[in-house]
């Protein structure tokens, strides 16, 4: 089985990769990628099935917090039921989106404001080094540069320093990180294509 899975991974990878460079393989690449689209959608459903089964098990076993699991399963079943009947873009489903999903996610994101600020304040208490100081100073500078005064941009900071820091200074580091990420992705991808890494379960 491991040989088969490795062969599948390598073959699909080579064909898809060949589509980038050889026009003759573009059709095969398109076909394989369209299959991948479908399989990825099915994988999402499998993930939801797994989530459901986990919480159903908790309910069956009567574990602590099973009442919450029951709420989760009820919400899931009801939303899925109405979503299948009415389709996701229906107004009722829009109400669900605007009434539950968006408020909860946005509120959680809003709470992050406090946490981030708290972390920034406490940073130098635990770590008073150059990296921490530069980090905090940059953040504070950009806080200040992003705001305005009643009469306009904050002089120098809003008009000169902030753009220079965010577009030049930060750019160098960001580009270095991006290139590093690309190199890492390249290495990882090649390891998968050469079956050195088999994250699909082939050890």
């Amino acid at each position: 089985m491991q040989v088969i899975t490795a062969f599948i991974a390598i073959a699909s990878g080579v064909l898809v990769l060949g589509g980038y460079f050889f026009p003759a393989l573009a059709g095969v690449q398109t076909l394989l990628l369209n299959w991948a689209i479908i399989l990825a959608g099915v994988a999402a459903i499998v993930g939801i099935l797994n989530l459901t089964s986990v919480h159903m098990d908790k309910i069956r076993r009567g574990e602590k917090g099973s009442a919450y699991s029951a709420l989760l399963v009820i919400g899931l079943a009801a939303t899925f039921f109405f979503g299948m009947i009415l389709r996701p873009q229906h107004n009722v489903m829009q109400m669900v989106l605007n009434g539950i999903i968006v408020p909860v996610e946005a509120a959680l994101m809003g709470l992050l404001t406090v946490s981030l600020l708290y972390a920034a304040i406490r940073l130098l208490r635990r770590r008073t080094d150059m990296m921490g100081v530069i980090f905090l100073l940059t953040a504070a500078l950009l806080f200040l540069g992003s705001a305005t005064l009643p009469f306009g941009d904050i002089p120098l900071i809003g008009t000169l320093i902030r753009p220079w820091v965010s577009q030049i200074l930060a750019l160098g580091g960001a580009r270095g990180i991006l290139i590093g990420v690309a190199l890492g992705a390249l290495t990882t991808g090649l390891r998968v294509l050469f079956a050195v890494d088999r994250p699909y379960g082939g050890t």
Binding site: L117, I121, L124, R125, L136, L144, S146, A147
Partner: peptide
């Protein structure tokens, strides 16, 4: 949103710098 945003950013800058310096001092003392 802009007024709230600007107030929030200024507040953040103030708290981060002020609180940071205060905590840096506390950290040095500790």
């Amino acid at each position: 949103y802009w007024d709230a945003y600007s107030l929030g950013m200024l507040l953040a800058m103030s708290l981060a710098l002020g609180g940071g310096l205060w905590n840096a001092a506390l950290g040095l003392r500790d």
